[in-house]
Structure formats: C-alpha cells, structure tokens
Computed example of a mutant assay.
Amino acid sequence: MSNSTNKRPIITHQNPKSPISEAYRALRTNIQFSSIDEELRVIMVTSAGPGEGKSTTLINLAVAYAQTDKKVLIIDGDLRKPTMHHTLRVSNRWGLTNLLTNQLTIQEVLQDTFIPNLQIITSGPIPPNPSEILASKKMISTIEELKQRFDVILIDAPPAIAVTDSQIIASRTDGVILVVNSDRTKREAVLKAKQNLDNVRARILGVVLNNVDRKNKDAYYYYYYGESQ
C-alpha cells in the first residue's frame, strides 16, 4: 500500500453531482457515440507533455464508466513514471511488467480498488526497456484476453512527444484521447503529438482541453471535441 500523499482528485467519485463530474459523464457519452458501427472498448489517454492532466482525466473517466455498472479496467501503461497506484492507493510491487515478461498471470496482477466496478493493473517494476516490452506480442494477446473480462479498458500512456511508448500502445487500442492543458501547452507541441499518433495510424477520438479559465477558482473543466480528421 502506498503512503503517497498524491492529491489527484477523483471528483466523479467524491462529488458525482458536481458540474465537473457532469463534464466527465459528457465525455464518456461522446466517446460512446463517436463510433456508430463498433464499440470502443480499449482507449488510451495521453498528452503532448507532462503535467497536462492526462492521468486525472483517465481516472475520472474510468469512474464515470464504472458508475454505469460496466466492468472497467485501468492499465498503467506509463512504465517510466507510473502514478496510478498512488491515486488508487494500491501496491505497485507487481503489475504490467511482470505480466508481459511472463512472471505472473492476469489474475495475479489484477487488483480491486475502492471504486465499485473498477480494477487496475499497475505498471509494476520499472523496466530498462519499456518500449520493447510494450511492443511485444504478449501485449497484444494480453489486451485481447482482458477484453473477454472487461467492458471498458483505459490505458494511461506517457506523453506522446517524449518517448515512442504512446505510439506503440496507441496501435493496440480502439482509440486515443489527447489531453491538452490550455494554460501551458503550445500549439506546436500538440501538433507534434498528433503527428506522432498519426504516424502509427492511431484513431484520435478527440481532444480534452482542461484548465480553461472560466472565472472560477475551483474550475477544472474538460471539453470533448469530435474525431479529428
């Protein structure tokens, strides 16, 4: 159990009737309706750079899905700077890296959380070769097996312009959400992140714009835009 004092808010759990929680539910709904002919079940969340709110977006979106009685799984795919175990107050002594290197089984790395209907596979020990592990055939087969167990799988990935990990993960998912901090992210960085994802033919479902100044000191707003063309 982590002793971290991580302050990442899970507003959808703490205050589900708040306007911010409603914004996350709107994001969930927009994702569900962004594809008519197929169900989007494996979704990666990333950002252009660090500190833009991608992990906060992911955890609150996961809770919004779980509140509809869907079986939801979070995978911490950030094998370089993992944080999800802090937020959900679970151990990170084992996780995805143990699974992908055939040390443990899916059942052994799955962990329950304090959120009903929500489980997590943490990153596990930080490996020396994250990109190679994520690019393995084991990653593909693992996601396919997890799809038999869960309705929705959300993968937290590293920033898209820092390393190739996000591109690798994106190629194994049904869609990608790109989180942009309106205060600090430069247009060039967003375009570079999009280009990196386009290079692997990732399906960018839309952009979540956060930290929009709405003259409210408590505001932490998120907006969802339609699928990029």
Rank of each mutant, 00 (worst) to 15 (best):
P16H: 09
V152C: 03
A219F: 05
R184G: 00
G49S: 15
S171C: 02
V109G: 13
T46C: 15
T101K: 11
N102I: 00
V212S: 00
I31K: 00
T113H: 07
M1E: 10
Y222I: 13
Y221M: 04
L99E: 02
L191G: 03
S55C: 04
P159L: 04
D198A: 05
Y220A: 13
D37V: 05
G124A: 09
G226K: 10
E108I: 00
I168R: 02
L209N: 11
I143W: 06
M84N: 11
A62M: 14
I168A: 03
L134R: 03
I75F: 05
E227I: 12
P128S: 13
W94V: 13
N129K: 07
V63W: 06
N3Q: 13
T83D: 02
R89F: 01
K192Q: 08
R187L: 11
T83C: 03
N6C: 15
T56K: 11
A202C: 06
V179P: 04
L178C: 06
D151H: 14
L146S: 01
G206H: 00
F33T: 10
Y24T: 10
M139W: 04
G226W: 04
V179W: 03
R41A: 14
I121P: 07
T113L: 11
G53Y: 08
S21A: 15
T185S: 10
K186H: 11
R8Q: 13
K217Y: 01
T83V: 12
N92I: 04
I177Y: 02
T164A: 07
I161C: 05
V109F: 13
T12W: 14
S136N: 13
